[in-house]
Design a protein around this nucleic acid. Structure first.
Lengths: 229, 229
DNA sequence: CAGTGGTCTAGACCACTGA
DNA sequence: CAGTGGTCTAGACCACTGT
């Protein structure tokens, strides 16, 4: 019966939650714990490393490992493609391209995406439906200087989101959540009224230092984004 | 010059982002990669494990490792204590207890927290200020059956959030974000007007299967929650 | 300077699962 | 059944950082 890193992790976690090792407490070093548990130091190391990632303990060379005074709680959200999000709930997904235009970026966008004001951007407005009802409004801007092939792509059948993930497998992104008010136009698309509260996601994406796309997603009133942690 | 797991990870990541290993591609197995990179299998294993956690590849015994068709993107948010959040921006934090009451839970809360309707809950309404201006409104409910010592705790100087993290070092939680409208009361507290869009966080917390607390946090208009991923 | 965590290695056994 | 990832071990060297 060998001791696994999960065993060690669970035991240390228990010691913390039960207050045996209170916040701020210095935890025994890896060598000592390995002896106590009767396992290799690498096993203890993995357990402790994961607890540190989870924000429960704090590790510093020479100073040793301590139980965090205020554990860092972190919530993880999966950022799915809209279609998958809808379909995973067993609903039917429908997509529609509302408008498409090409031109120079407005000033606020040039500032936000760090674009030359002489550049060209593609702007797409799209709607995503779940079971026939409005679900999400998408206002998307794509930097054509960085991604010229977007100009000839067909966005009438598939959303830009899906096209982008296949064009750029991986990227850096900044995402932000906020609450805004629906104006008449947005309310029209989302099937509500002007003045409705709208849950809004904004996302900027970079790849190899170049700004690729900025998008603003607006959800129907009452939308919630939920996770456990 | 030994090869580190970071080197391996970076190289594999590069192969994916540059399309050398396109989505769906079967990646060589660990033994083979270890030979190619001239390092131990454990080193390759750690690199691949982290890439799998990041949602870029998918690993299955016997089936091998594949590049994910649609990478799972996940955003992490730190959920800080309000005071720390404010202070970390270099602003002065102030706390005020608005009201405190004890009684049976309303039906919606009993349902949400899975409480006996005969139970007792403590309700606190608090305000958090940054540099003297309203920052966050907190509507907090605590299950006194699970946490009787909350009834005698002093919440006039310190917020329930800080008291709770010391009383319960670790817990399961569900958090959800949404957009709501300020009513007259809330607008009064937050220094805005009725009808303002309000970014709202709701959080339920459990410990050892028992529901501990439910809270609803409302932020001043214009508040954003941002992260990189 | 010395103690602690960070990482690598070479080898081993095992658990899972696709064919 | 056999191939792949999952994990453990014992030992080693190193990087960082309090004292």
């Amino acid at each position: 019966m060998t001791v696994t890193y999960r065993d060690v992790k669970a035991d240390i976690l228990a010691k913390i939650t039960q207050g045996i090792w209170p916040p701020g407490e210095l935890v025994p070093n890896e060598t000592e714990l390995a002896e106590n548990y009767g396992c290799a130091r690498a096993t203890v190391n993995r357990a402790m490393r994961e607890l540190a990632e989870a924000g429960l303990i704090e590790r510093r060379r020479k100073a040793g490992t301590r139980v965090r005074i205020a554990p860092i709680r972190q919530a993880k959200f999966n950022i799915p493609i809209v279609r998958r999000e809808v379909e995973s709930r067993g609903e039917t997904y429908r997509y529609a391209l509302v408008s498409r235009s090409v031109g120079p970026p407005p000033d606020w966008l040039a500032a936000r995406m760090d674009l030359a004001s002489a550049g060209k951007v593609l702007r797409l407005i799209c709607m995503h439906y779940a079971n026939g009802a409005p679900y999400q409004h998408e206002d998307r801007w794509i930097n054509l200087d960085a991604l010229p092939q977007a100009e000839t792509a067909d966005f009438t059948q598939t959303g830009p989101n899906e096209w982008l993930v296949s064009a750029i497998p991986f990227s850096d992104a900044e995402i932000s959540f906020s609450a805004t008010l629906a104006d008449d136009t947005l309310a029209g698309f989302l099937g509500g009224n002007a003045g409705d509260p709208v849950f809004t996601i904004e996302r900027s994406t970079w790849w190899e230092g170049a700004s690729i796309t900025y998008t603003r997603l607006s959800f129907t009133p009452g939308h919630r984004m939920t996770t456990r942690y």
